[in-house]
Design a protein around this nucleic acid. Structure first.
Lengths: 148, 148
DNA sequence: CGGAGTGAGTCTGTTTGTTGAACTCACTCC
DNA sequence: GGAGTGAGTTCAACAAACAGACTCACTCCG
């Protein structure tokens, strides 16, 4: 029996879960954000099995988050680079970063690393707001309605 | 061999992946955001197997995203309600919503539902910004550094 | 020319996880 | 006394993930 798929669900969260919910997928995407492009580099960085990595990269290319671009012939070698859609998925990872930073360390412990701007050097702390008002989003306080 | 765990990774994204990356988990949390509290209601809404639902709820309670509160004796019945930490995880779901809304429908198709404020009735579109500057976060443009 | 090295996978046997369906248990309601 | 309900647990079949070995097409070094 196939694992239940959500890729044609009416709900955006379900469709994204279908795409990013496979084990290892968010970490592959994260490493792509950090500039990793080659199969071997993903594999060594993550320690994932080569078979699983191969399957994840194929999916991400199929879904349009990564482009697979040949950068030499004889033998053919590829690099995997983020597409526009792939970069947009960075917002989900950024939200995960913030939630993890705030809630996944016990007591006074904090993660050893932080995000910072390459230009100003200031620390960056992702926050989810409403685009129109700039106010924090609280999902449990919103309602769902049919789009008009 | 156990599926590789990321719950003690140095990276916040990896730890959150460990927590939310199990199949069905984001959807359980989403339904909790929409106000579902009872086992049977989750099961019927999602169509997930009862065994998996049971395991996911146990994990979410263990991790402190849900509280399991008895609301009657004889027989004991519980409701699962979001904790503060659980509501905070809503930001990740909101970012998923936005990415899904923008990128998971083909061509001119759009999801049939949208998020709206309960108070003003205005549509809400989650956006990930830097808390300090209010500017959009582009994860692939940031750097990682050791926290000082 | 021969052998080591490398990038990008595929293959294999075993262990874990997911699925749908049936089953349990402790009740309540008629 | 029997049907119904809420909240699970158990089961066997199937899918996915694991570590490690293997393949293939090259290049580089001596």
């Amino acid at each position: 029996m196939r694992r239940t798929r959500f890729d044609d669900a009416f709900c955006p969260i379900a469709r994204v879960t279908d795409l990013l919910g496979d084990w290892w997928t968010p970490l592959v995407l994260r490493d792509a954000m950090y500039g990793i492009t080659k199969f071997e580099d993903f594999q060594q960085e993550l320690g994932v099995s080569r078979a699983v990595l191969s399957a994840r990269l194929v999916r991400l290319v199929d879904e349009g988050l990564l482009d697979k671009i040949p950068y030499q012939d004889r033998p053919v070698r590829h690099e995997y680079v983020l597409t526009e859609k792939g970069r947009a998925a960075g917002d989900v990872l950024a939200a995960m970063w913030r939630f993890g930073e705030d809630h996944m360390w016990e007591g006074d412990d904090q993660p050893l690393v932080e995000l910072a701007s390459r230009t100003t050097g200031e620390q960056v702390r992702p926050l989810v707001v409403d685009e129109a008002t700039g106010e924090r989003v609280e999902l449990d306080r919103l309602k769902l309605r049919r789009r008009r």
